[in-house]
């Protein structure tokens, strides 16, 4: 295929991608550096919009709180994913007949819209009619039948656990694929040399899984920083109750579309830029560390 024909083939995709993805992405940053009055763009504002995020209400209270929630979301998801997810994948490995079926069942909740998942669990955990509390009462755990979502102390953890419940099929799949890629000869050799099952896992299998764990971690990080639909379903755009389920994306949405502030475009774009830098920086750093590890184990 010659160059001209090739370019003709690429043009439709490039036009679509350029207009609706690249152009908005690039301008999103530029918005943050201008002065805005409603939808009218004023002069260059330098970092004014960014300083507003750290000096002006409601950002001074909402931003650190939302960031903390994003971080807790990430850490909580990571802990469960890398313990339960890896254990499940390890137990599934070598179950030739049932693995496919079980993996499929675990992946089911992933398909469902986060909005549906949020409303579903809101209903299931409802203090007035919720099946969960009814069940807890029936089995004699009345003291556990609490308004989980109404209490600012527990609401965030409900959001995190529900999210993990929805996504766990994904790390199970990835870890399963990674385990399938570990050559049997290696662990067999370790066994022949007298290593126990636990030792074989810790010294042979696990180091070879680190790239997969890293991939899952990076994807989880991006996912946790962008969390929007699920918390929106649980606590609306204000992160009810009492801001306990607020996240950066919700704060961004409120600032851009609900705040009514005259410079909303400027400050919300600054917030989006900050979030982008956070996501990209975090993912980039993690990938760099990972690549170094990969080089070491393949060397």
């Amino acid at each position: 295929m010659n160059r001209r024909t090739g370019l003709l083939f690429v043009t439709p995709a490039l036009a679509l991608f350029g207009v609706f993805v690249l152009y908005p992405m690039v301008t999103a940053f530029s918005y943050a550096f201008y002065d805005w009055q409603g939808t009218a763009r004023g002069g260059f504002a330098g970092l004014e919009n960014f300083t507003a995020l750290f000096t002006r209400a409601p950002f001074t209270t909402d931003l650190p709180r939302a960031l903390l929630h994003n971080v807790l979301f990430f850490v909580g998801t990571m802990l469960v994913q890398n313990t339960i997810g890896l254990t499940v994948a390890f137990l599934l490995h070598r179950r030739v007949r049932t693995r496919r079926a079980l993996q499929t069942l675990y992946a089911m909740p992933y398909l469902v819209s986060p909005i549906v998942i949020g409303y579903l669990w809101t209903l299931l955990l409802s203090p007035t009619f919720g099946p969960v509390n009814t069940l807890l009462t029936k089995v004699g755990l009345e003291s556990w039948a609490l308004p989980w979502l109404g209490d600012p102390d527990t609401a965030l953890w409900v959001v995190i656990l529900v999210s993990v419940w929805q996504w766990i099929g994904f790390p199970v799949l990835l870890y399963g694929a990674a385990l399938g890629g570990v050559p049997e000869e290696l662990s067999e050799a370790a066994r022949v040399d007298g290593a126990s099952h636990a030792q074989t896992f810790r010294r042979v299998t696990f180091p070879l899984l680190v790239p997969a764990i890293g991939t899952v971690s990076v994807l989880t990080f991006i996912f946790a920083m962008e969390a929007f639909a699920l918390p929106y379903a649980f606590g609306g755009s204000t992160g009810n109750p009492a801001g306990s389920t607020d996240f950066i994306s919700l704060l961004f949405y409120r600032t851009a579309f609900d705040s009514g502030a005259t410079d909303a475009i400027g400050t919300s774009s600054a917030l989006a830029t900050l979030l982008f830098v956070l996501i990209f920086g975090g993912a980039y750093a993690a990938t760099a560390v990972l690549r170094r590890h990969e080089r070491r184990i393949t060397a």
Binding site: A13, Y31, I222, E226, A256, I265, F276
Partner: peptide, 28 residues
């Protein structure tokens, strides 16, 4: 299939979109 260098460049441009959080560009 393209052999010209411009295709390598275009491919990485497209692939960079894999990492772009497009939702953050909602205002533009």
């Amino acid at each position: 299939r393209g052999r010209s260098r411009i295709f390598r460049w275009l491919e990485s441009l497209f692939l960079s979109g894999l990492m772009l959080p497009i939702h953050l560009a909602i205002l533009p």
